[in-house]
C-alpha cells in the first residue's frame, strides 16, 4: 500500500517538500542573523529560487514529450504555483522591506530602472497565470486557457531581461537565456509515439 502511494504521489511529495526547503533555509538564516545584508541576500535568494522553479516548471512539458514520462505533467501546476509564491515573496521584500512601501521612492524606482519594470511585468504575467490555474478557470477559458498559459515563456524572457539589466556583468543572464531558448526549441521536437498527446494533458489532472 505504501508502495502504491509512493508510486502515485512520490514525485508530488518530493516537489512539495523540496519547494519548501529554500523558504526554511532563508527563515533559519534570518533568525540566527547569519545574513550580513539581509535585505539584499533575501531578495537574491527568493529571486533565484523563483527562477530555478520557473526553469523546472518549463522543463515538465519537454521532458514528458521526449521521454514519455507523463507523471511530471502532474507536478507542473504545483511547480508553477511555487514559482509564483517565491516571486511574490521577492516582490514583497523589494517593495516592503527594502523600500518600506514608500511610494514616493517606489514609483520613481519603477520608472527609472528598467530591471524593476521587467521584473514587475514578469510578475503580472505570473499572477494572471496563477489566478487562472484552477480547474474552474481552465473550463471557463476553454481553448483560450492554453494560449494564456503559454505566456509563461514571455514571463521567463522578461525574467532573463530582469537579471541582465540588474547585474554588473551579463554572464548569468546569458546562461539563463540559453536554457530558456533550449527549452523553447525542445517544444518543437516531435513527441515520442508512446507519449502522444502528453503536452495536451490537462495540467490540473490529479
Amino acid at each position: 500500500m505504501m508502495r502504491t502511494f509512493l508510486k502515485r504521489h512520490g514525485l508530488k511529495l518530493v516537489i512539495h517538500l523540496g519547494a519548501l526547503v529554500p523558504a526554511v533555509v532563508m527563515a533559519l538564516q534570518l533568525a540566527r542573523g547569519s545574513y550580513l545584508d539581509p535585505i539584499r541576500q533575501m531578495t537574491t535568494a527568493s529571486g533565484n529560487t523563483a527562477l530555478a522553479l520557473l526553469g523546472l516548471t518549463l522543463t515538465c512539458t519537454p521532458l514528458a514529450r521526449l521521454t514519455g514520462f507523463r507523471a511530471v505533467l502532474r507536478v507542473r501546476r504545483p511547480l508553477g504555483l511555487y514559482t509564483f509564491s517565491y516571486a511574490a515573496l521577492h516582490l514583497l521584500i523589494f517593495a516592503g522591506w527594502d523600500y518600506g512601501f514608500a511610494w514616493d521612492l517606489l514609483i520613481p524606482a519603477l520608472f527609472t530602472q528598467r530591471f524593476v519594470l521587467a521584473g514587475l511585468a514578469a510578475f503580472v504575467i505570473l499572477l494572471a497565470l496563477a489566478l487562472t490555474s484552477t480547474r474552474g478557470w481552465q473550463q471557463r477559458l476553454g481553448r483560450w486557457w492554453k494560449r494564456l498559459q503559454r505566456w509563461v515563456y514571455a514571463a521567463a524572457g522578461l525574467v532573463v531581461l530582469h537579471v541582465l539589466l540588474l547585474s554588473k556583468t551579463p554572464d548569468k543572464a546569458l546562461r539563463y537565456g540559453i536554457v530558456l531558448v533550449l527549452l523553447l526549441v525542445l517544444r518543437w521536437v516531435p513527441a515520442r509515439p508512446s507519449a502522444q498527446g502528453a503536452s495536451s494533458a490537462p495540467v490540473t489532472k490529479d
Binding site: 550580513l36 545584508d37 535585505i39 539584499r40 522591506w97 527594502d98 518600506g100 521612492l105 520613481p108 524606482a109 527609472t112 530602472q113 528598467r114 530591471f115 539589466l165 540588474l166
Partner: peptide, 13 residues
Amino acid sequence: RWSQANERRIGET
C-alpha cells in the same frame, strides 16, 4: 541601468 538617488545603508532598514 539603475537609479543612484538613494542608498541602502548596510545594517539599517
